[in-house]
């Protein structure tokens, strides 16, 4: 389960062509509202996102990688995503990831999920199945989800605020120990979910992310999809 594999680097690479580059993870709305203005506020934003939406995504990904029923996890993801804009985005990203992964790591599990959810399953669930197909375990899947939860906003803020890219990368580096912690908690919860059911998975939620996602979706002009 703690096997180190280069497949994780391929999967977590920001250049993995699964649509992530067009999503700011709520950062575009936070920049407009003045809640992200510099490196420090970006860090605090990313830290909050990591421990809420990031932890939840990591738990779902770890559970899917561990072999829990993806359709049950997809329903659990719906319940953990009160914002319809974010549910739609998660499904769209799930479909995009499925497309890329079916080329990179073809897998009957992915084919089955794509057939059951032709409009896309929640991205973290797909991510877990992809990790599994790539020979990665639940912890690695949780790492990929946790990293994605913060790398997306950090990259977006470099574009939105012309923030010094070194500073944005330093934010990610400073968050690394907390990403370790989140990934470990998510993987541990995924194992508990085998015995206790899906309620054992984290359900961390960030009110401002949910609220502003709906506002952002209604903007007539925006740079990022979310």
């Amino acid at each position: 389960m703690s096997t180190l594999s280069a497949a994780l680097l391929v999967l977590a690479d920001g250049r993995f062509p699964a649509g992530g580059h067009a999503h700011s993870g709520g950062a575009e709305a936070a920049v407009k509202a003045g809640r992200i203005t510099d490196g420090a506020s970006l860090e605090s934003f990313c830290r909050g996102r990591l421990h809420t939406a990031g932890l939840t995504a990591a738990g779902l990904a770890a559970a899917a990688a561990a072999g829990l029923d993806p359709l049950g996890l997809d329903a659990a993801a719906d319940a953990r995503t009160p914002s319809p804009a974010l549910r739609a985005a998660a499904r769209r990203l799930g479909r995009q990831l499925t497309r890329a992964a079916r080329a990179a790591w073809p897998s009957p599990d992915l084919d089955a999920l794509a057939a059951a959810r032709p409009r896309g399953a929640h991205q973290p669930v797909v991510l877990g199945l992809v990790a599994r197909a790539a020979g990665l375990g639940p912890l690695a899947a949780a790492y990929a989800a946790a990293y994605e939860a913060v790398s997306g906003p950090a990259t977006a803020v470099v574009r939105l605020l012309s923030l010094d890219p070194f500073e944005a990368t330093a934010v990610l580096a400073r968050l690394a120990p907390e990403m370790d912690d989140v990934a470990a908690r998510a993987a541990e919860a995924a194992l508990r979910a085998f015995d206790e059911g899906l309620d054992a998975l984290p359900a961390g939620s960030a009110p401002l992310l949910d609220i502003t996602a709906e506002q952002h979706a209604a903007w007539p002009v925006r740079l990022f999809a979310t």
């Binding site: 509202a33 605090s44 990313c46 909050g48 809420t52 939406a53 401002l208």
Partner: peptide, 11 residues
């Protein structure tokens, strides 16, 4: 967990 008072959670 950190960030609860930041721009993603309570601002």
């Amino acid at each position: 967990p950190g960030g609860w008072d930041g721009g993603a959670v309570l601002g």
